[in-house]
């Protein structure tokens, strides 16, 4: 935050920002203590082992409902990790991420259901279709100012949903159902715990992929684009190309998550891809702290579990959620657990 204040010295609103800084103290202290704790490698390993042990033992004690919620949390993590490449790493605003997982879900769903393909063979097709979709959406929008991408993704989200609702092959408004579940080593994946473990494994793959991207030359280029597009361009980064690839990678990750989602649900309908879905994914990334992989995962877990915990307050929960969102943004605009910049 300090850097930002200095930059804005000349526009007279510094006083307001400083007022905010004073109120931020409580949060910042907690986060700082978490950071200094997590800085020590052995602490990091201990925390990771405890979390991993917890995640892996969930099916041993949980009932079906809790397992379903846990599986859903894993699914959200996949989506948020995909969205994170676009929003967190590159700083583009994507308001239609649900469309991306819809693309994957329908591609896989139609191939398995209507054409009787083996699910695992549909995955390469899902990747290709995801790439095509990304180029179609991103192509016109990425060359323009960043806000246009927000609108185009939003519009594309609506287009995908409307097309799915109106076409014969996507099963119109009721969608596809009774899709045959895939087999692994001759065992059909019918039980929720199998899916849970499969998704935990997928999350692991996505996390590895995210970290590989982040630490690569490509990822550093993306961070540069996010921090200062003009400077990045001046330094010889091909901004449009980098953004395009980030968009493609994020979209393909979303599409893959969608393909697995449809197999677990054994059904897909246009109502799964409403704007609320997209905004939840975006919020998970932003509140989790833009680009910080564990933060984004925590955000995704929070967003999938929060509505379940607060079911008792019923219709008020989205109202409180909106209020919480505004307050978090005012008092902690960099997210709850932001990436600490290397100096």
């Amino acid at each position: 935050m300090e850097n930002k204040n200095n930059l804005d010295l000349n526009n007279g609103e510094v006083a307001v920002v400083h007022e905010g800084t004073a109120k931020r103290g409580f949060f910042t202290r907690i986060i700082d203590s978490v950071y200094s704790f997590m800085d020590k490698t052995h602490n990091k390993i201990i925390v990771a082992v405890i979390l991993l042990a917890f995640v892996l033992t969930v099916p041993l004690w949980a009932d079906n409902y809790i397992l379903q919620v846990a599986w859903n949390a894993m699914f959200y993590m996949l989506l948020a990790l995909g969205c994170n490449i676009i929003v967190g790493f590159t700083g583009m605003v994507d308001l239609g991420f649900a469309a991306k997982f819809a693309v994957g879900a329908y591609t896989s769903g139609i191939l398995v259901h209507t054409f009787g393909w083996n699910f695992w063979l549909t995955l390469p097709i899902v990747v290709i279709v995801g790439m095509i979709a990304a180029v179609l959406i991103g192509g016109p929008a990425l060359r323009l100012r960043s806000d246009y991408l927000a609108i185009v993704t939003l519009g594309f989200g609506e287009i995908v949903r409307t097309v799915a609702r109106n076409l014969e092959i996507t099963g119109s408004a009721s969608g596809l159902s009774g899709i045959k579940r895939p087999y692994i080593f001759g065992t059909q994946l019918t039980r929720i715990w199998m899916w849970y473990y499969l998704f935990v494994f997928l999350v692991f793959l996505f996390v590895v992929a995210s970290n590989r991207v982040k630490d690569s030359r490509f990822g550093r280029g993306l961070a540069y684009v996010r921090e200062d597009e003009d400077a990045a361009r001046a330094m010889g980064v091909n901004v449009v190309k980098f953004k395009m690839w980030a968009f493609i990678v994020g979209t393909v990750m979303g599409a893959i998550a969608g393909a697995f989602y449809v197999m677990q649900m054994a059904a897909v309908s246009p109502n799964s891809f409403q704007f609320t879905q997209s905004s939840n994914i975006l919020l998970a990334v932003v509140l989790g702290g833009m680009g910080k992989v564990p933060g984004v995962m925590a955000g995704a877990a929070f967003f999938s579990i929060f509505p379940e915990i607060f079911r008792s307050i019923g219709e008020y929960r989205m109202l409180f959620f909106g209020i919480a969102l505004v307050l978090v943004m005012i008092f902690r605009p960099q997210g709850l657990w932001p990436e600490r910049r290397r100096r």
Partner: peptide, 23 residues
Amino acid sequence: PLLDAPRLSLLITAIGVSLILQN
């Protein structure tokens, strides 16, 4: 309070306000 914050924060706040009004 967010006029000088990153643009994305402002956008998220607007989504939050929209949720508040709707609900």
